[in-house]
Amino acid sequence: MILLDENTHAIVQGITGKQGRFHTKDMLAYGTNIVAGTSPGKAGQTVEGVPVYNSIEEIKKHHPEVNASIIFIPAPYVKDAAFEAISELDLVIIITEHIPIRDTMEIVEYAKENNTILIGPNTPGIITPEIGKLGIMPTHIFQKGKVGLVSRSGTLTYEVASQISNSGIGISTAVGIGGDPVNGQNFTDILKKFEEDSETEKIVMLGEIGGIAEVKAAKYAEEHLTKPIVSFIAGVSAPLGKRMGHAGAIIEGTDGTAQNKKDLLAGHGVHVADRPADIVNIIKNL
């Protein structure tokens, strides 16, 4: 397992909002260790039995063990919330989408300066089966196993995780890095963590058109990693210059096309699937 384990003591920023309440209940039901939440001006309330505070500073006074946060806050206010979390905690996950790109760039840079692991924004989060989740993914499709899953797409993550779990192979940890052009942890960062994880034997990397993050990760893996990687790139039929779904999924020139990525990944030793449905068979044959 990576990122989320038995030592994770998490808070929910924006816990009294509609999304915060709903997903807090779901995360608790899955066994996640949610210690507290923030909602300025609403200290003293509880959500699903979880105490609410005005700030992370207040939480740390009562719960010094807190080391992770998941953010459910409207986009215009995420930057302040993220800076607060990054300055205090080891792991910060931003679910919110449509954050201004300048804000995201500043958040990512601040996380690097503070050596805080940042997941997102615009991510479904992370899940470690039988341990917990800090995210919004449907838990029933993730069964415990030995395959590490990293993806830019939430929907594609769910489809592939379901197939891997139904096959009896299962997932060690699944991480959505986010679909925006700028995000915290990238594919290479997560591949490094899976390489060091004793519970992960094989890795699935789900990418999209646009950018070169998947190719950079594959090149790094070829030179430094020992565990086999299976990849699928979504967007084979996407036209040049048109954004497809995620803000980061846009082709400029030929470098970001799905076919070009597939060719480059294969050239770096990655096992490339033509369809998501092919991934399980490739895993079984590795």
Rank of each mutant, 00 (worst) to 15 (best):
G17S: 08
K60M: 11
V47Q: 00
E57S: 11
I99C: 09
L89Y: 13
I71E: 05
I70R: 01
E48D: 10
N54F: 07
G44I: 01
R102C: 10
Q45K: 13
E58W: 08
T96Q: 08
V92P: 04
K60E: 04
P74M: 13
G49N: 15
K42G: 07
I70W: 12
A29N: 08
V52P: 08
A43F: 07
E113A: 15
R102H: 11
G37S: 07
Q45D: 14
D80G: 13
A36T: 00
I71Q: 05
A36K: 05
A85W: 06
K18E: 06
F72W: 14
I70E: 01
E106W: 07
P40Q: 05
Y30H: 15
N114V: 00
H98G: 10
S55C: 02
E48V: 03
N33I: 07
I93M: 09
I99N: 04
A68E: 07
D26I: 15
V47N: 01
A85P: 06
N54L: 12
N33W: 08
H62A: 14
H98I: 11
T104E: 10
K61E: 03
S55Y: 15
M105C: 05
E97S: 08
D103Q: 09
Y30W: 15
H62K: 09
S55K: 03
L28R: 02
I101P: 01
P76W: 14
I71C: 10
P74Y: 14
I34S: 01
S87R: 13
I93E: 11
S39V: 15
F72M: 00
R21M: 06
